[in-house]
Amino acid sequence: MSSSHFYSSITKKIIMSLMGLFLLTFLLVHLTLNSFLLFDKNLFNEGAHFMGTNPFIQVFQWVLFAGFAIHILYGIILQIQNWVSRPKGYKKRAWMEQSPFSKYMIYTGAIIFIFLAIHLGNFFFVKMGWVGNGVPELGGKEDMGQLVIDLFSNGGYVAFYVIMFLLMGFHLDHAFQSAFQTLGLNHPTYWGFIKGLSRVYAIVVTLGFVIIPLVIYFR
């Protein structure tokens, strides 16, 4: 497969990295909103209501879906080209990757995609009325918080959710600093900081998303 059929390898990678950074930003917003559940369900519901009704967000959510689609599409194209580039592998290959999770991005990415589909089915599709019995109501208003709490009262689902986010953490650990490298933002003075920040981001986001269902389950 010749990459000239699409864009150059670097252009494709730049598109991947920009979409990736966009998704990283989205995850932070999502985590912030989810964390409201730890403190006040009504606050979470207010946030969910804002996200579900604000006209800008309504338009922007389709931009977000497009971001996911482009990131996934280019990820698959790049990976197929990479597999094609080495038709015959080695009999013995040592571990050489300096960014440990870089080796498994397509696999962690595929798992995240499956999780994303299930996640949308559990929340977004229910909210849209496409599946399930609709969102519970509290005082005439949608009680999204209760929908989440109900789901997180299921131990099996909590375990699945935690494992998914641990795998996502591996994806994020490589993703953040890799995007900077691809965009050419590798400077000897700041590179150590960027790599450190990448790891901190991965740990904080993963722990954040993991703690919320655990706290709700054991509360």
């Binding site: 010749s2 790049l78 991005m105 890799s178």
Partner: peptide, 22 residues
């Protein structure tokens, strides 16, 4: 040079940094 590199069928960099190590 990038166009020629792509045309020849080399893979895409995924920033594993194995190249630098080796």
């Amino acid at each position: 040079m990038v166009a020629k590199m792509d045309e020849l069928g080399f893979g895409n960099c995924t920033n594993t940094y194995a190249c630098e190590a080796e």
